[in-house]
Design a protein around this nucleic acid. Structure first.
Lengths: 339, 339
DNA sequence: AACAAAAATGTAAGCGCTTACATTTTTGTT
DNA sequence: AACAAAAATGTAAGCGCTTACATTTTTGTT
């Protein structure tokens, strides 16, 4: 056979080339790479020298196909533009890297249909395991993952009663604690700016937390004025304006996250309202923006980095058949100047 | 052969199962998936029905091995925690997704040795192409990528004279324009807080830009006081303190990015200095933080999203042998309140 | 020194696709 | 209706690894 393809003369070396150069079988080269303790020192040295001099590096597609494992883990998040996800995913990726795994990323833009598509895509691409945000999704997706035996971890939320593996925090409890604080300061008329609750369980749990705190304080949860919007400073400002210029404006506005709260803060300035004297504002997440805002934001601190790191560990354990268990991370109310 | 492995009875269906169910050859199924215009309508329908009813999805490792293409593109960035990279990468990923490609992410923590390792890892994992930040790296890495014929695009910087493909902006020019503005306002004593310039060409080009503006204005570039640190609000604050409490403190401090500038702003507050009356401060990047800072930050706007999107397109073109060309994106000085 | 057990190595099949080439079927032209 | 060209389909090799099983070599014991 002549050089039939347009393959360059100095083609990428493969395992077979290493084997030939080192004078061993391909099996031995493979073992040097994967289970070196089953190869003699002398052979390892010879093989490693051959690898170095040829500049060999294994083809992971072939490896994945043969071994049935890609050492690749997928993460599907709403968007990397939200600092909390960027942070958590950065920590997740660092931890994976330490364990020889690579991260595959996809984003769903907070849309369930896109998330489903991504789950299918990433598993087809051979993701050994998956990081997902929240619990809320079509049950058949859980069946799909279980049938395929693909471990997954749910993050940014927690449901101790469910059997699914999670590394998260209790959105309801965290927000309830903050709301109780707000109420204890005398606020009776509450408003809330939230992300769309229908498809975002973190958002709906936070709203529930507010209602629970009102209930406990003898206030009617039905009196909570809620505006739903999507996460952005601008939308936060608009929603705030809507809330404060309507009938009996609230004296405190609890926001679903810090970005919305920053928008609310801007809205207050536009309406010439003093914060917190005229209106109290709170956030959620404790991103960098929060402490740097014109008026440092009262918010809930969430350990995003730690969550990402632990999620990686849990997944790696699961892949190595080490029994992994869910973890609920603590959150903390951060009192600053807007309450 | 009995059911020798511990493989479940309902194993994941493969292409062969689809072929059998549809009564066609495996080649035809493959063609339905990859080049449907070479298959008759009737057959496509039959095959698609089989795919649906079996819940088949192709194994990408096998596909990649057979086709010699993974449809996976790698990005190696310093860190996702910096909003500018998170933004750019989000746009990059969205554009890839539209074109059927998946994103593989690795981070280098601003370290060249780690970046090199990641380049090796991602290419071994079969990344068809790579997005890299800046131009500065060991030349043998460029040789490596060229030898392997892996297209790559350099971003967040530009060097029209070089042959390498880039989608970026001129850091030097952008910063020079801002510095000229600062000088035109009467500032003669300048300070600068920069990232480490030795291994970060974006940082060193920005410093060069300041020097060039000073030169043009008849100021001695040697008089520029420079503090190098790593990107964080806290380090920005420290560096600012160091600059302002030293001998002949500058009247204007140009920061290498917005995060450092926010730190400087905080440092000014701590020293009871009014901004801009006592000291002017500028940033770079125009991240969300900039306009929301206690005193809205004068900075340089960089089109991060557009950069990410165009980088994806350029890479996809290169992969399809469409001749792709570099693009220099414009930046814009954003005058707000700190100058 | 002889032997059994353990360690190291080799042989070759198989992972699930794609695609060059061969063959069959359909379409269009006269 | 007969034929050539075009379209559709099939056959089977091959992508670059891993790993079960077989064989050879080394180690340790008496």
């Amino acid at each position: 056979m002549t050089n039939n393809s347009n393959k360059p003369v100095s083609a990428v070396p493969k395992l077979e080339d290493v084997a030939r150069a080192a004078g061993v079988s391909t099996a031995t080269v493979s073992r040097c790479l994967n289970t070196p303790d089953r190869v003699s020192r002398k052979t390892i040295k010879r093989v490693m020298d051959a690898i170095d001099s040829l500049g060999y590096s294994p083809n992971y597609s072939a490896r994945a196909l043969a071994a049935g494992r890609t050492n690749t883990i997928g993460a599907i998040i709403p968007t990397m533009e939200n600092a909390i996800f960027a942070r958590g995913i950065q920590a997740f990726q660092e931890e994976l890297q330490k364990n020889g795994c690579t991260l595959l990323v996809a984003s769903s833009s907070y849309r369930q249909d896109l998330e489903e598509e991504q789950i299918k895509t990433l598993t087809a691409r051979g993701a050994d395991a998956l990081l997902l945000i929240g619990f809320q999704r079509d049950p058949h997706l859980y069946e799909f993952l279980e049938k395929r035996k693909i471990p997954f971890v749910l993050t940014w939320a927690c449901k101790p009663s469910h059997e699914q593996l999670f590394v998260g925090f209790d959105n309801r409890k965290a927000m309830k604690e903050l709301a109780a604080r707000v109420i204890s300061l005398g606020h009776r008329s509450l408003g809330c700016i939230s992300a769309e609750t229908a498809t975002n369980d973190r958002a709906s749990e936070r709203v529930e937390g507010i209602c629970a705190a009102m209930q406990d304080a003898g206030l009617d949860p039905g009196s909570l004025r809620i505006v739903e919007t999507t996460y952005s400073i601008e939308n936060g400002e608009k929603a705030f304006h809507q809330l404060l210029t309507g009938d009996n404006a609230p004296t405190a506005v609890l926001c679903g996250n810090d970005v919305l709260a920053i928008g609310a803060l801007r809205g207050a300035a536009a309406l010439n309202l003093r914060v917190p004297q005229d209106v109290a504002i709170t956030g959620f997440d404790d991103i960098e923006l929060a402490s740097v805002a014109p008026i440092p934001l009262t918010t809930v601190h969430v350990p995003h980095r730690r969550m990402g790191q632990l999620a990686a560990r849990v997944l790696i354990d699961a892949l190595n058949d080490v029994p992994a268990s869910s973890v609920e991370l603590p959150t903390e109310v951060c009192l600053r100047k807007t309450l």
